[in-house]
Design a protein around this nucleic acid. Structure first.
Lengths: 163, 163
DNA sequence: GTCCCTGCAAACTATTTGCACCGGG
DNA sequence: CCCGGTGCAAATAGTTTGCAGGGAC
């Protein structure tokens, strides 16, 4: 089993390829935003991405972040997620295996999981319906052990309180 | 296999129970909105729900629709979906078996599917992580036959153009 | 009667867009 | 040079909220 570990920096090339293919320009701002984004690990909001990008280029504006992330999405390098927060969060895609999310409705904490079986099943189902799947979003909402009141149960959010 | 076909009207009782349990009042507006919602089949936007509810009670306001749908969600009778449209859509839950969605990114058309296997798998995975799942959201984004350029392929949206 | 509920309009939040200027190719 | 890209601010879109008056219990 040849193990291929994709690191974020490897994704810079697909990005360049995409830009070239579309005839888009490489600007300082885009570079700053894309670099900041690819350095990202969990789920980023665009405000957070903005301040991260500003470390490399203080002049970057929020609108450009929105515009650039849209490009990243089209290039297949970013995936958007809408949890219940109202804000759209993004994560680098193609980096790890597809993974999905379980959100505790009490703690608001997000756990990631992956299941090849689910992946396979869903693509089989989709194929049967004539679809070619490009992206997917799979979110389970429920209660973690602690929220269920299980004695000794704990919540992954124990020290990652929201707000 | 005893087949239990839940019709929307059956859901009126759980709703009443919820209202009683929470000590909430039954008002004309709430009745109009809930009735309109339970009559619903696909995915409704709240503007649409508003005008539907206004047929029974012209005075209903949009804010009350938002407030009431939030109650329906808490009661477990409504499930929210965010497809790419920006607007949150709702559907009656508990009516049919859990079902998930495939969205064609070109036509914007939504196909529903259900897979017991996927359901089972996902709850097993969640359980392993200590979670008790209450709701879930499973959306596949891709291209329908036509959008893929398959000769003779057709798109379910053929006559259900968006907008 | 007592509060909960409601409609309206204003407030908010996230995202998009118009426009004059800037800079990459 | 040309035209796409950018920042800013204003414009949108969806959703929430404050408040005075009304209705359910």
């Amino acid at each position: 089993m040849g193990e291929v570990k994709l690191s974020a920096s490897n994704l810079k090339e697909p990005w360049r390829a995409y830009m070239r293919r579309k005839g888009l320009k490489t600007t300082q701002q885009r570079e700053a935003i894309v670099d900041a984004f690819l350095r990202t690990t969990g789920h980023v909001g665009l405000e957070a991405l903005l301040s991260s990008a500003r470390k490399a280029n203080p002049g970057v504006g929020l609108a450009t972040v929105y515009r650039t992330v849209k490009l990243l999405e089209e290039a297949g390098l970013a995936a958007s997620r809408q949890f219940g927060s109202g804000q759209t969060l993004y994560e680098v895609s193609g980096q790890r295996a597809h993974h999905d999310h379980i959100i505790c409705q009490q703690c608001q904490f997000i756990v990631e999981f992956e299941s090849d079986e689910v992946e396979q099943l869903q693509s089989r189902v989709a194929h049967r319906l004539g679809f070619n799947i490009l992206q997917h979003r799979h979110e389970l909402f429920g209660l973690c052990e602690k929220a269920q009141g299980i004695p000794g149960g704990h919540c992954p959010s124990e020290k990652a309180r929201k707000k």
